[in-house]
Design a protein around this nucleic acid. Structure first.
Lengths: 215, 215, 215, 215
DNA sequence: AATGAATGAGGGTTCATTCAT
DNA sequence: TATGAATGAACCCTCATTCAT
């Protein structure tokens, strides 16, 4: 049911991986997320996958290609691809408000990231630290998403249900709080149990209040 | 003037580094932040510092000790060490409100990180990936800060000028938005110029509104 | 027409190669001569031939067997196999002279090498460096050729139309100048166009003059 | 006394090699000439030199740089650098003739190559087979030598003591016969003993006769 | 104190060869 | 017969660390 959020299963399909190559793929995700790309040797990956080291390089030209094969699918999903769906939903409801729109979007993003938090961890790190990978990833993020995102925000601002700040700032407020939540609970993982629905509601409330225009 | 926020100058003092060792120290910060700890060789550090490779290991037992020498001072400063100063300030002003308290604190944190963003960049990465370093750093964060932080928040909540959410959640909202801002502008460094005071005001407004109790 | 000089076509016949194996054979010649035996991978050969890598090893036990299959036929032709034909020709002409004999022989050798210069290039390299191949090739050069060669030279010397030097020296003068010409134009391949008949005439003249006994 | 012809001793000096690096240098010459550059592993070189493998890469950036360090000095000497010295010698003698000029030059070249036949073997092979190295070597051959060579030949042709063929052809006749001799005796090394002065005299006679203009 | 030559374990990658399909 | 996935030894090279000078 939640397979719509499982990114790498899809990647495995489209890349036509053999069973052993799937093991390599999954082992790489496991180890990269655990100890970082630079700190994981191809030998370790092959051992974790129960496969010869050479097998890695049959499918993946080199270690970086393996990393990109893991990360690229995410770049196509990392921004909501049908933002207008959310805004339309809000309109259909008749009861047009920012909260409903954001609630839908935030939950969608959280679901996506939850099911791919290991890849997300790898992604976040490489995106910040490896300029080369940073550039390659930026390129592969669909331009369409950016455009849509801006259109929706501009529309909301025009209707005066969104504060009139720069779109990039608004985007950062969204991203910071969603990612902050996810990083705390899924990446740093010190905390054992928590009331997820409640916290998500808090996040939504927090963002909605923060982005509502002051009268 | 802003030397109060300069962490590594202090580190150099306390560790009693010779001039050459200072060069090593600064070169390591420069290169670790630029290309990551794992991707920086001691050879490169020594060359950047204009020093022989062996000199690194005279002062620092090994590469990791050098890293820890860079990061440890930060752990003592990463949480505000005199939060009550901020709250007292707010009181003294007579005009007690959340915004003033947060404004002071946020600006303080941003100043600290700005003047140490290279170390921060190194810190973020190692904190996420190296369990060993993660643990050492957690230990060295002063317990006192945690306690103080909780006391202040509880006080604010009692006075009903702060929303009644879990302190850790509130902390996360603060941290997420401050770090989000800093990472965007000081670590990812795609953007060239921006209106810093305005953005900081937005951040403060955003957080204040988000954390103000609903009537 | 010039198929008498085409060595590998013959090889293909005698080894009874299937069409795919012919492709492998020709691809190997192409690539070995281009980048050297050691620098050509079986994968590259199979790709160049449009064939699976495994197919190479169906016919050829290993990479070296493939090399030997290419080189061995050359070793049976590398020395003129019917030298007496040349000398007889010279006699029949009635106009017995060294020049006519050498002209015929030199042109014959040049024709042979021209049509097999890729194999020759491979041969020259392996002959020099691989002792194992060196020995195998020396063995497979027909003893008859040596004997014939000596007989012809001795006869010419007796008739005092050839200088009285050691046969091996004379052989080297012949070989050096013929190979020098071929290596320059067919193996080093820097030069674009040249007057082949003229140069061959010069070579012949040069050798004839050099080997004519001084009165 | 003959150290004027020893190229690599000079190389070792100019490159300021440590004793261990000299061992590496000499081992590389030994092994490259014995089994070829491509068939010699850096591990083998280090073992032959009784040194750790890493030591190779302290001085030489990579395997190819090691090869170039061996070959480059030769490229500066491979063509006679003071051809006019030979021609002047011939003139001074009063008894100006082609034979004297060639005798001097041929003996000089043979001496040079004899004392560096291992490097020559490596050189010949890489020059023919590795396009990349071919180009680098061509570049480093001093242009002056080419110019001088042409001037001397043109002068000799004008005085009608040298046949009027293209200079490149004449060069090839010289090179082919000198190299043929050296390759036979110093590189293929099947022959045990031979009368060197006699053979060199034959070579000189052979070339002189071949290049003397026909009346 | 400072140097930098030397080490050798381990890194990513290539490749001839095997073998199940 | 033909394929190509899989292997693992060997390859070139990097690097933190040691130590004689």
């Amino acid at each position: 049911m939640n397979d719509q959020f499982n990114i790498y299963r899809e990647a495995e399909k489209t890349e036509k991986l053999t069973p052993k190559q799937k093991l390599i793929f999954q082992s790489a995700i496991e180890l990269f997320s655990e100890r970082g790309y630079a700190n994981t040797s191809t030998k370790e990956i092959s051992e974790h996958a129960g496969v010869s080291e050479g097998s890695i390089f049959r499918k993946f030209k080199n270690k970086e290609e393996l990393l990109m094969a893991i990360l690229t699918p995410l770049t196509h999903k990392i921004l909501p691809q049908d933002l207008d769906k959310f805004s339309r939903t809000a309109y259909q409801n008749g009861n047009l408000n920012l909260k409903y729109f954001l609630t839908t979007m935030i939950n969608d993003r959280i679901s996506l990231f939850k099911y791919n938090h290991k890849i997300m961890k790898i992604f976040l790190n490489e995106f910040i630290y490896d300029q080369h990978i940073h550039d390659r990833l930026i390129e592969s993020i669909p331009k369409k998403s950016f455009k849509q995102f801006n259109e929706v925000l501009d529309d909301l601002k025009k209707k005066q249900i969104l504060i009139d700040w720069d779109n990039l700032e608004i985007f950062r407020f969204l991203a910071s709080n969603i990612l902050g939540y996810l990083i705390e609970h899924y990446i740093i993982v010190d905390v054992k149990k928590w009331n997820e629905p409640l916290e998500i509601e808090h996040i939504t409330d927090f963002i909605v209040k923060g982005l509502t225009p002051t009268k």
